[in-house]
Nucleic acid binder design. Sequence first.
DNA 1: AGCACAATACACTCGTGAGTGCATATTGAT
DNA 2: ATCAATATGCACTCACGAGTGTATTGTGCT
Lengths: 208, 208
Amino acid sequence: MQNSPFRNAAQREADRAAKRDAVLRAAVRMFNERGFFATSLDDVAASLGISKRTIYHYLANKDQVLLECITIGLEQLLEAADEARAEPGSGRDRLVKFLHRYVEINMDDFGICVSRTGEEALSRDSLPRYRALKKKIDVAMRQILTEAVEDGSIGPIDVKMTAFTLAGALNWPGRWYDPEGELTPSQISKAMVRVLMGGLDPRNSPDA
Amino acid sequence: MQNSPFRNAAQREADRAAKRDAVLRAAVRMFNERGFFATSLDDVAASLGISKRTIYHYLANKDQVLLECITIGLEQLLEAADEARAEPGSGRDRLVKFLHRYVEINMDDFGICVSRTGEEALSRDSLPRYRALKKKIDVAMRQILTEAVEDGSIGPIDVKMTAFTLAGALNWPGRWYDPEGELTPSQISKAMVRVLMGGLDPRNSPDA
DNA sequence: AGCACAATACACTCGTGAGTGCATATTGAT
DNA sequence: ATCAATATGCACTCACGAGTGTATTGTGCT
């Protein structure tokens, strides 16, 4: 059965997907390093030892390359939201879980690409999909916040503005995080979440 | 004395500065709308009813146009830091003052440009000046935080990570703020600062 | 063996936009 | 009145990079 046509068909499909993936990975790394506009697909091809024409065999155009990269990043965030919501514990526990994952994803190749790329980089055609995904994440964030407010495990904050504020803070590491730096993603995420949950004002009594 | 050569020389200088300024203003607006790379200097010139060649009379190249815009924005932030530090009151009071101004500046044309522009957009030559200014602002922010921690008016937070977290949150409005939207800069800034100062965790006892 | 199709390369077109050379107008100084 | 300098436009060059037409190779299928 090793060589049945089914297996082979599947195999080829997998090969193709793997190659497409490799292109996206190479592309996203270069986008993050030099920026989307300063990166030519010739560069990306060269970094893989292939020709630009090959890239166009797997992806329609440069815009689609970017959209795929961003989509991967955004879908990771959506997954994180789903996972967090499935957790046991208080609303606050689920929120904290989500925030941690959010920060960490934003220090991964595709996540970095998300936080560094603005709407200007995408084509008219790609914008709707992009905006829809962004919106979903915003909705998920607000949902998680609302649940936590409702069960009283966090204070009665303004959900909308809090979601914006959190998003900003959590996305920022994508701009300055340096894999060679001293701080690990996990340390960064812990520190940031602590600040955001506790706030700057002194607590009336320190809790356990 | 109305027509003394001094007056005229000064006048001409002022005219020139005003024109240069108008170019920067027009440029920054377009950069913010379409993005730096999607904006050609021909576009900017057209929006002012002049020719591209005229722009090159006041500014050396596109890179310098951007650098000037960013510098204006960053210098506003530095000013805000100085003003805040000169205020009376507790360290917390000065910090809050600074944060409010910070957010508001980030919703002004030049401030938006700062928060939307990454290092990729600048040339090798411009980077040092850019980085130096950014650093100054980070230092100022940490200074203000440190003072507030030391006089006990805010909790004993990790200054470095808090500065990063705040910067992220405060810069974010530059990405989504819409002058036509319902929320005014002042409302946004108030809401964000409240979230950041108070945190999400419930307070042990609500204060006055 | 031969066919069909996927994968890849090479060499090209074409548009766009940064930056410039030159010619011209305007204005203050002598 | 004339000169010098400043301001501005027009038309150009030049490089770069996205995307493509076509040829070539490899591989599974019959």
